[in-house]
């Protein structure tokens, strides 16, 4: 009789523990979000814009040198 009573009381406790675990699960999932994903998106957007500037600068200076020549060459 006593043993059966004890078993009936045990199950609700496990249930309570399970409820507590569920409550804490959302914050635990943050640890699994990979910061690298955001970084790839950011670097591709910023990199795309930067590449335009970089390419422009490269050709601008090449053109400048062609038209005006290198200072040392002129001397």
């Amino acid at each position: 009789m006593n043993n059966r009573d004890k078993e009936q009381h045990r199950i609700p406790l496990i249930f309570k523990l399970y409820l507590i675990l569920i409550l804490f699960t959302p914050s635990m999932a943050y640890a699994y979000v990979d910061p690298g994903t955001g970084s790839v998106i950011v670097t591709s957007v910023l990199g795309f814009i930067a590449a335009i500037g970089y390419t422009f600068r490269k050709y601008f200076y090449k053109l400048k040198r062609k038209i005006f020549g290198n200072k040392t060459e002129d001397d």
Binding site: T43, G47, F48, A50, A51, G53
Partner: peptide, 13 residues
């Protein structure tokens, strides 16, 4: 895909 000019451009900026 990342081109070299994207990375160098970002580094220079």
């Amino acid at each position: 895909k990342f081109s070299k000019s994207m990375v160098i451009g970002l580094v220079q900026s």
